[in-house]
Amino acid sequence: MRPRPAPQNSPRAHHRTRAETAPALLPPAAPLPLVPLALLLALLLNAALAGCAPPAPGPSQPPPPILAAAPATQAEPLARAAALLAGDSEFFSDQGPPQAPAQDALALLQGRTEPQARLLAAKALRQLGRFDEAVAECNRQILRTPRLAEAFVERGQSFSALGHGQRALEDFQAALVLDPKNIAALLAQGDAYFVLERPAEAEASYSRAIELAPERPLAWINRGVARDEQSRFQEAIADFTQALALDPAEPSALANRGVSRSQAGDIPGMCADYARACALGLCRRLHDAHAMGYCLPR
């Protein structure tokens, strides 16, 4: 995620990345709007053009499918692969996500054909930067199981990485038509809105995710970023503070709170947060502040 750049003389001189990105006891945001018919038709048309249109939901249709658990003899490799890929939404160091776990996961999934395994393979391909291959894998799964919301979420994340923001947003919206309580889709939809410079809609997506899963720090951090982008710095600070209440060792919450504190004029608070984030492995903000003459050691 990339909030606007700060003025050149500000300690906030670089964009914020998604790895630095969602809590506070604030009034609930407005609920997400219902998907209008025209938008739903557009989503289905887009999926059809990709060769994998999901059926439009209707009162006579069954609920979206749930991925079946693998037999006990096959479950261990899937569980190991999922564990290797579990860092997808978590903090990575300044050097970015390590690629070895994704490569190991892909090796574990070789030859596996069940949908859960193939979606994990698509996630591994995405983490390896092989986005076109990840999209192709998701396309195959959507053709096989067109009402599988997770496949649209995963494909949308690869579209986003490829810079196709509108296509990504359409996939996340399609996933939410199929499963309105899909937390991953809500978070990803918020990210897509943010990239498209629509922070109010991003905030609404994150607020809905918080409503459904208030224990998830990432949703609070991302909402804080969206509120900061709208110059609502105190509300952003409160969201980052709530994320830290849920996970005191979350460096992205500290780094982002430091940014909002700098915007609110609290330079000592900014420096304290940057120092704590650096102690947890996220040092870029502190180094940037040093380069501009802030937070220097005494």
Rank of each mutant, 00 (worst) to 15 (best):
143 L>C: 11
159 F>I: 03
227 R>A: 10
241 T>E: 07
221 I>K: 14
119 L>R: 04
260 S>E: 07
129 G>C: 00
160 S>W: 12
150 E>R: 08
223 R>S: 02
251 P>Y: 03
130 R>F: 01
154 E>N: 11
183 I>W: 12
217 P>D: 09
256 N>P: 06
169 L>M: 09
196 L>Q: 11
178 L>G: 04
219 A>T: 02
203 E>N: 08
253 A>Y: 10
142 I>M: 14
233 F>S: 08
254 L>P: 00
221 I>G: 12
249 A>Q: 15
259 V>Y: 01
228 D>P: 01
205 S>H: 08
202 A>G: 10
172 F>K: 04
238 A>D: 14
138 C>E: 02
134 A>C: 05
177 V>L: 14
143 L>G: 15
227 R>T: 06
196 L>W: 07
189 Q>M: 06
122 A>P: 00
218 L>Q: 14
211 E>H: 13
180 P>W: 06
190 G>D: 10
161 A>N: 12
145 T>D: 13
234 Q>T: 14
236 A>Q: 04
257 R>G: 06
192 A>N: 09
194 F>P: 01
154 E>W: 06
143 L>N: 11
170 E>V: 07
164 H>N: 15
185 A>P: 02
150 E>W: 00
260 S>Y: 07
129 G>Y: 00
153 V>W: 14
211 E>Y: 10
171 D>C: 15
171 D>F: 04
171 D>V: 07
262 S>Y: 10
188 A>S: 15
215 E>V: 13
197 E>V: 12
221 I>C: 12
249 A>P: 05
163 G>Q: 00
183 I>D: 08
229 E>S: 12
206 Y>T: 10
156 G>N: 03
137 E>A: 11
185 A>Y: 04
132 D>L: 09
205 S>V: 09
215 E>F: 13
207 S>C: 13
192 A>G: 09
237 I>R: 00
195 V>A: 11
251 P>W: 03
210 I>V: 15
225 V>F: 02
239 D>M: 05
139 N>E: 13
149 A>R: 04
196 L>H: 04
157 Q>G: 05
213 A>T: 12
135 V>C: 11
240 F>A: 04
192 A>V: 10
187 L>Q: 09
172 F>E: 09
262 S>Q: 07
201 E>N: 12
190 G>M: 07
238 A>F: 10
218 L>G: 03
216 R>W: 13
118 R>H: 05
152 F>L: 07
223 R>M: 06
208 R>E: 15
245 A>I: 06
246 L>D: 08
162 L>I: 05
192 A>S: 12
180 P>H: 04
235 E>A: 14
205 S>C: 15
213 A>E: 15
170 E>A: 13
229 E>D: 13
207 S>P: 02
131 F>V: 00
134 A>P: 03
228 D>N: 09
246 L>Q: 12
191 D>Q: 15
195 V>Q: 13
127 Q>C: 00
241 T>S: 14
124 A>K: 04
258 G>N: 05
252 S>F: 06
181 K>W: 12
246 L>W: 08
137 E>K: 03
228 D>H: 03
193 Y>E: 02
